[in-house]
Amino acid sequence: MTQQPLVHLTGVTRNYRLGSVSVPALTGISIDIDPGELVALAGPSGSGKTTLLNLIGCIDKPDSGRIVIDGVDITAVPLNRLAALRRSTLGFIFQTFNLLPVLTARENVEVPLLLMGVPRKDRDERTSLWLRQVGLETQAGQRPDQLSGGQRQRVAIARAMVTRPKLVLADEPTANLDSDTAGRILDLLADINGRTGCTFVFATHDPALMARAGRIIHLRDGQVVTNHPAERQLAAAV
């Protein structure tokens, strides 16, 4: 039996308006991403990586084409009605961490569970578990401005993972980190992917991150240029 893809895009197009001019960000994108994959979206700036990530993340709508996430055709569903899908199925990791500055690390991780209405006991257990997983148990009571960049990104990873999502979307997750910290974050993400079977999709410029990916989708000018397993592409590059 063929495995149903977690993400299925067919002929997806997205244009942006710049004044009176319509600028194509994505043109005719058709890709499938299977459960458990670790996929890198690569390409130069303006190639459409973030736009594609936004569409998969149900925070933007395509102008045409069809998007199915975890068996749900979201193409015609208004964004606000996709809040529940985003809460339960998706996790987000941002380049600038995007933590709530007035909340502690623990409270930041807890927010998605609160949004889901998870009971307090379960919430506490899951929050503690993920703070432990990302190695921040002792910093749980600190606010983001008291944490280093790497620690903040760990909090963001814990926040993304605490709801046990099927798919985590990360936009340049290592771009604001030094190479050592970025390396440790990559180890952590690869480890989580290996242990939980959660699907990860990254938009990245970082060759180190691409090297960890199981598949690399290259984009240029809003179109898929290559879409192959990483070994093949990296070998071709060598």
């Binding site: 606000n80 995007n98 998605p112």
Partner: peptide, 14 residues
């Protein structure tokens, strides 16, 4: 604004 975007991205309703 960015915090609001983040909250909505992680599933906060309008």
């Amino acid at each position: 604004t960015r915090e609001i975007g983040t909250l909505m991205a992680i599933g906060t309703t309008r």
